[in-house]
Design a protein around this nucleic acid. Structure first.
Length: 487
RNA sequence: GGCGCAUUCGUCUAGAGGCCUAGGACACCUCCCUCUCAAGGAGGAGAUCACGGGUUCGAAUCCCGUAUGCGCUACCA
């Protein structure tokens, strides 16, 4: 059963294309999307591109791509604020007419000097309201002199504004701590405060879910809604996501943009699950939830208030869980592009899908990200292995006995009629005893010879996939390496 | 400097006055499984619930201070 209010839920994700979308932005998008879906409402995408100076090329595309990749599909938009300038200008006229706003002709230089002076005197930096009560005559003379203007909000000098945040509860700000903030910049673009309020109203946004850093802007927004005679939406300020050093997430923290996680081989479902748990929880034990389950259970009441430090280890673990849960064919499908991209050029393309499939069945439970699949699977594809001969002796072996063991193994293997894991084990396990080698020592030696690594998937399965020819060749190479090495 | 918000294991978190000698997860350690790795299983260590005062028979939970952190304080969002 849904109430009328629930069906009218409309939320928006309103990023600004001044940078690539990082985890914090995406988490905000996620919570908005989950909230909308949970209540059967609409999820709207709005691009807040009102800062022409800081606009980053390609950022908008990255935002759209990131959301699509994660399956955070929006119902309306994207709307672009840069295409709605006339709308804001009209509102500005109204505000000017009703006296809630005024034109300001102060130069950026004067403002800067003023702020420095205030800082020096340990005064709160605030606009000194020089233009707040200009006469019509004064304004006209500034205009005719061609001096650029901004439009500022005429903030009430006294009183206070209280609003009830859905996550934080009631919050109060005194008006005398606010200043006359800018609504319209001299380039004709609105500031965030204006555009945000105007659009939220015109787009009938019912709930504003955004990061905590906006909390102290709410009184300005509420005052604007009142000046315009509009009903403000409900506000919910989400805890922020911090880097390991407790600072705001930035490039300094390694991968931060969502596209980078995609590139490194994280699964959308894992990203969603992980992000959802940064600031929200279902109960005291559930960690793994599908997007459908999240939509079903998400609620603002269970959103925390404390900022979260993003823990990459846990993301990796979770991604590994999702990787292992994939069906074999799905895993092959997902991993294929990564192999294509990262396997050495010397490996011929296109890759043989049947072979890749066999290889990946041994890799799937060992990878935490798709990005590490090529590295884990590398030795299956190379024609020549490159490793330090000393690795062959890592089981505390001397070169002679290693050469001996390798040679006998090669002989027995040569005679093998069938080449599958069971047959190989049938040959090699008894041979260890014959050689009076511990299985650990013997299989370890063979492993290095065959893979070039001390850690790899189980030996017999690995050899089975590798094939007889390659295995024998590698055994032979190992013997040669040890022979020349000991001379 | 002003204003605002926050404060439970290293990290993510459970906890809405007695169920808490504070639960779960990641990471870490030990053991089991085992040809290595991974996965899995069983244990362990890890939080005087920031600190100090109240309120109460009883507080991680309510109130007040203090400290610390973060955010805002732009013609940035």
């Amino acid at each position: 059963m849904q109430s009328a209010l629930e069906t009218s839920v409309r939320v928006r994700f309103a990023p600004s294309p001044t940078g690539y979308p990082h985890l914090g932005n995406i988490r905000t998008a996620l919570f908005n999307c989950l909230f909308a879906r949970h209540h059967g409402g609409k999820f709207i995408l709005r691009i807040e591109d009102t800062d022409t100076a800081r606009k980053v090329e390609g950022a908008t595309e990255a935002i759209l791509e990131g959301l699509q990749w994660l399956g955070l599909n929006w119902d309306e938009g994207p709307y672009f604020q840069s295409q709605r300038l006339p709308v804001y200008h009209e509102i500005i006229e109204t505000l000017l007419e009703t006296g809630h706003a005024y034109s300001c002709y102060c130069s950026p230089q004067r403002l800067e000097a003023m702020r420095q002076e205030q800082a020096k005197r340990k005064q709160p930096p605030k606009y000194d309201r020089r233009c707040r009560d200009l006469t019509q005559q004064e304004r006209t003379s500034f205009e005719t002199a061609g001096i650029a203007r901004v439009v500022r909000f005429r903030t009430p000098l006294e009183g206070e504004t209280t609003f009830c945040d859905l996550i934080h509860g009631p919050v109060t700000f005194k008006h005398d701590t606010l200043d006359d903030f800018v609504l319209l910049k001299s380039d004709g673009y609105p500031t965030y405060h204006l555009a945000n309020v105007v659009d939220d109203h015109l787009m009938a946004i019912s709930h504003v879910l955004r990061a905590d850093e906006w909390l102290s802007s709410v009184p300005r927004h509420v005052l604007l809604y009142q000046a315009l005679n509009w009903q403000p939406p409900q506000f919910a300020h989400l805890p922020m996501i911090l880097g390991p050093d407790r600072a705001k997430l930035s490039k300094r923290h390694g991968a931060t943009t969502i596209t980078e996680y995609r590139r490194q081989g994280y699964l959308p479902a894992a990203m969603i699950n992980f992000l959802a748990l940064l600031g929200w929880s279902l109960d005291d034990r559930t960690e793994l939830l599908s997007i459908e389950e999240l939509m079903e259970h998400f609620s603002l009441e269970r959103v925390g208030k404390t900022p979260a430090i993003f823990n990459r280890d846990k993301l990796e673990w979770m991604n590994g869980v999702y990787l292992r849960r994939l069906g074999h064919d799905e895993f092959v499908e997902e991993a294929m592009p990564f192999l294509d991209r990262d396997l050495p050029d010397s490996v011929g393309r296109p890759l043989d899908r049947a072979f890749v499939s066999r290889v990946l069945s041994l890799i799937q439970e060992r990878a935490k990200t798709l990005g590490e699949v090529p590295e884990l699977a590398r030795f299956f594809f190379l024609s020549e292995l490159q490793y330090d001969a000393g690795l062959l002796l890592s089981g505390k072996l001397d070169a002679q006995s290693a050469i001996g063991a390798l040679t006998v193994a090669a002989q027995r293997l040569e005679e093998a009629a069938t080449w599958d894991a069971a047959a190989l084990e049938g040959i090699l396990r008894p041979l260890a005893t014959d050689l009076s080698f511990s299985t650990g020592k013997f299989f370890g030696l063979l492993r290095v010879a065959v893979t070039g690594c001390t850690a790899a998937p189980p030996l017999f399965q690995t050899m089975a996939v590798l094939g007889k020819e390659k295995c024998l060749k590698r055994l032979d190479t190992a013997v040669q390496m040890l022979s020349t090495d000991s001379n």
